[in-house]
Structure formats: structure tokens, C-alpha cells
């Protein structure tokens, strides 16, 4: 049994063997926002914050997260109010099929929290580990750039 605080809510779960935090989130806790695509750290669609650090949840052994605070994409909005990254992604057409979007939202909100005025290069580097198989990178960067200027 391990304890996790996920988006502010405490949970006690029993991961099986070396299963990943991604599996625990999706299959045991029903949090389907974090996506499972590559399971090898290559695509970023499973990105979460683990005690404030941006990680691929597919590469975190769930039992090693015991005691951690996890923020998933479900915890990015403030209730019904979208995070400005989410708002911007919707408005600028940064979402096509949407599979990469949760990971991009988590990574981009982390970028803005740690680098308030990122340049385009900062944005591209921050998202270097998030693959969009619809290749919508132009729209994603255009969505995020105005936020950098704003903050």
C-alpha cells in the first residue's frame, strides 16, 4: 500500500509489482487524463508533476512515488475555470486529435510556473519531450507565445 496526494486529494493504493505510476493513475484510480502511448519516456503524453518536477509517469515506479504529491492534467484547471494554457490551446487551435494535449498542458503550465516569460526557443525546448502525432507544433507554439508576453 502506498499513499499519494493526487491533485490535492489523498489516496491509498496498492500497485501491482513494478507497475508505473501511469498504470496506477489510469487503471486503479480512473484518472484517464494522462495518456499511455509509448510507455518508454519518448512521447510525453503521460507527463505529470511529481513533487513539482515534470516527469513521465510511465517511467515512475508507482511504489517509489509513496508519499508524493502528484499533479495530473485533471488538476491543472481551477474547478470549472480552465488554466490559461488550456484556454489558449483551445482558442489557437492547438488541439487536433487531442492525444498529446494533456501532456502538453502539464508541460506548458510547468514551464510558465518556472519561467514566467519564456522565449519561443524556451517553449520549444520545454516541449521537446512531447510528441504531437498530428504534428500541430506550429499552432501549439502560437497558442503559448502570447502567454509568455502576458506574464
Amino acid at each position: 500500500m502506498i499513499r499519494l496526494t493526487i491533485n490535492g486529494v489523498p489516496h491509498v493504493v496498492d500497485p501491482m509489482g513494478p507497475e508505473s505510476l501511469l498504470t496506477t493513475l489510469r487503471d486503479r484510480l480512473g484518472l484517464f487524463g494522462s495518456k499511455n502511448a509509448c510507455e518508454q519516456g519518448e512521447c510525453g503524453s503521460c507527463s505529470v508533476l511529481l513533487d513539482g518536477r515534470l516527469v513521465c509517469s510511465c517511467l515512475v515506479m508507482a511504489v517509489d512515488a509513496d508519499g508524493a504529491a502528484v499533479t495530473t492534467v485533471e488538476g491543472i484547471a481551477d474547478g470549472e475555470t480552465l488554466h490559461r494554457v488550456q484556454e489558449a490551446m483551445v482558442n489557437a487551435g492547438g488541439v487536433q486529435c487531442g492525444f498529446c494535449t494533456p501532456g502538453i498542458v502539464v508541460a506548458a503550465s510547468h514551464l510558465l510556473a518556472t519561467t514566467p516569460s519564456p522565449t519561443e526557443t524556451d517553449i520549444r525546448e520545454a516541449l521537446a519531450g512531447n510528441i504531437c502525432r498530428c504534428t500541430g507544433y506550429g499552432a501549439i507554439v502560437r497558442a503559448l507565445e502570447p502567454l509568455a508576453a502576458e506574464s
Binding site: G41, G44, S47, R53, L54, V55, C56, L59, V60, A107, E125, A126, A128, G129, N130
Partner: peptide, 9 residues
Amino acid sequence: VGSPQIRSA
């Protein structure tokens, strides 16, 4: 190395 996610872990 890798990406920000890989480098933080």
C-alpha cells in the same frame, strides 16, 4: 539528454 522530463528524473 532526452527531454526535460528525462533530465528531471
